[in-house]
Simulated assay, not measured.
Amino acid sequence: MICGVEIIFLIAAIFSLNFELCFCSCARTEYEIDGQCCPMCTPGHRVYKHCTVETSTTCVSCNDSTFIDAPNGLIDCFSCTVCDSGQGLRVKIPCTQSSDTVCEPLDECYCIEQHRGSCIQAVKHTNCSTGQYIKHKGTTFKDTECAECADGTFSDGSFQTCQPHSKCEDLGLKEIKAGTHSSDAECGNKTPVALIAAILVSVIIPVAVAVAVIVIMLRHPHSNSHAEQCGLNPASCGDNIAGQSLLNK
């Protein structure tokens, strides 16, 4: 059984321990160094010299491209985050002495990992394939959602809705190539009857004339030879004609 003296001694020991703990604990705006509590530096500043019994903490501003965003007892500032375009990032809010850089995804990217309100990694939005349309456009934190085109419509992958195939007959044209899910129907002009007739005439008539000339030449080879001789020597041609006349008599 514990006597009254021992109880009093135990209470005194606990009180003494609490007093020492309270005495050694620094305030929320202080930091402990070598058993002494020193005032913290404000955000954007770092410790240049720790406090002493006679002097307070000496603080200096963070250098360029460095920061500290909270009251502190640090002797070095943190390096500002670099938004790497190779990671699909760009600067949203520049770094200051009291705050780090805030990064965001590039226009064609979306964030897949973030820390304290800043994106630290992004990837490119999905490009919809031909035959698909953009059902939901990609955002800063969400990828693009694609969907297949229905029959009778098409998309090259960049449309937000599939487009209906052109109806060539309604346009007074002829369908040259049927449409697919990835391309429109191809239409062309119908060939006019008059144009067809003109083409046939321009081809058939010269051919017919050439054939007729060849046939005549094949049937009367001597006449052709005689005509050629007369053309070369008209005088002899006249003598031959006269002689031929005498023989006929």
Rank of each mutant, 00 (worst) to 15 (best):
E175F: 00
G231E: 13
I205D: 03
G131Y: 11
E54A: 12
T180S: 14
V91W: 13
G131Q: 10
A13F: 09
C109Q: 05
T58M: 08
D64G: 14
D76F: 01
A227F: 00
K92N: 12
H226G: 13
I14S: 10
T42P: 07
L17D: 07
C62I: 08
Q163E: 06
H50M: 04
N224V: 13
R116C: 00
A235L: 14
G172K: 11
G4K: 15
D84A: 00
Q36L: 03
E148C: 14
F19E: 12
C168N: 05
T42W: 01
Q87A: 14
G88A: 03
S56T: 10
T52K: 02
Q114P: 01
Y31Q: 08
C103L: 06
L21T: 09
H125D: 06
E113N: 11
F67N: 00
D239R: 01
L17I: 15
N189H: 01
S129I: 10
D76P: 02
S56L: 09
V5G: 04
D156L: 10
S155K: 01
C24M: 12
T180N: 05
L246E: 14
P164C: 12
C146K: 07
I93W: 03
H115R: 10
V203M: 15
T126R: 15
L21W: 04
F23M: 04
G138R: 02
